[in-house]
Nucleic acid binder design. Structure first.
Length: 301
DNA sequence: AATCGTACCAACCGCCAACGC
DNA sequence: TGCGTTGGCGGTTGGTACGAT
């Protein structure tokens, strides 16, 4: 037996809502509330609409305190940060943005914000090579990218991302943000990371943070690490890594430990400076280094 | 002026989890 | 415990506006 329809499809109106329908719905809910039952509401309110349609119209358009119009820069940053860490969980994002609906955020991301992010995804400042060129030669293809938050003094110093976790869409930048643990309302920077911006040579670095052994945002004990790893060694290990991804923390940790480069903060800065080929990331690099200074222990392994 | 392509966004659809009987 | 109902969610669609040719 199939699922019962939520309403009589033949007798419900579809398509855009008229001002009269809006008024009816608004008036009814203001007087009686939703009554916890959207399915019966349209009939009681005198509307020839599906209950789901009423709910959507109310939540996305008619309810009080809905914000319409342009998104602010701060809102942009929050959305980008959240997308980098949780993906397309629009309702969770909406909870962080008072007055915005999940539908709004989804539309805004799909039509505008995503495109705003695209230039960093496709431009290769020095080589001019398209991303797929690097994907086949330089990148850790077939690699699962965890999100990469770093914790410090109750704040997240978050080197997270990439924008897409799909192996077919390798990252070109990592979102960076700082925030306290409950609100994402601080700044976001873009860090083009060398493996995607094009490293100067193949034996270069990968910058990682967070829990490398799972897709979790955090290490289980709340700790963090930031590491600079030899790319070739990591590449050699990536098959093992993929096999064991999320299943064998100690082994993976060992793999990363074996490939890490032991260096001081000054050496770390130097390594980043000399291995990133894009000249337009200097500002981001400064942000990065400044924030790294805030982290008590830069080299975790 | 007409046509076409693109951008935008409101609304719909189908899936799924929670809940109640 | 199983099944039907409902609300919530994310992906997708279709209509409209607008700019380019």
């Amino acid at each position: 037996m199939g699922r019962a329809p939520c309403c009589d499809k033949a007798n419900v109106k579809k398509g855009p809502w008229s001002p009269e329908e809006d008024e009816k719905l608004k008036d009814y809910i203001q007087i009686y509330g939703t009554g916890g039952n959207w399915i019966t509401l349209p009939q009681k309110a005198g509307l020839r609409r599906c209950g789901k349609s009423c709910r959507l119209r109310w939540l996305n358009y008619l309810r009080p305190n809905i914000k319409h119009g342009e998104f602010s820069d701060d809102e942009d940053k929050i959305i980008c940060t959240l997308f980098a860490s949780i993906g397309s969980r629009w309702s969770i994002m909406a909870a962080q943005l008072p007055g915005r609906t999940d539908n709004d955020i989804k539309n805004y991301w799909n039509t505008k914000l995503k495109k705003k992010m695209i230039p960093s995804l496709i431009s290769m400042p020095e080589t001019g090579k398209p991303l797929h060129h690097l994907q086949s030669s330089n990148l850790l293809t077939n690699y699962s990218y965890p999100s990469l938050p770093v914790f410090h003094n109750g704040n997240i110093i978050n080197i997270s991302g990439p924008l897409s976790s799909s192996p077919a869409s390798p990252p070109s930048s990592y979102m960076y943000s700082t925030s306290n643990t409950s609100n994402y309302h601080h700044h976001t920077h873009d860090y083009p990371v060398l493996q995607s911006q094009g490293a100067k040579d193949s034996s270069t670095l990968v910058i990682c943070g967070g829990d490398q052994a799972s897709t979790s945002s955090t290490n289980s004990d709340g700790s963090f690490h930031v590491g600079v790893y030899d790319y070739n060694k990591m590449a050699n290990l990536r098959d093992d890594y993929n096999k064991e991804f999320g299943k064998n923390y100690e082994k993976i940790k060992g793999c990363y430990g074996d490939s890490s480069l032991d260096c001081s903060l000054e050496e770390f800065k130097q390594l980043i400076s000399t291995n990133l080929c894009s000249s337009n990331i200097d500002n981001n690099l400064n942000f990065f280094v400044d924030d790294i200074k805030e982290v008590e222990k830069v080299m975790y392994y």
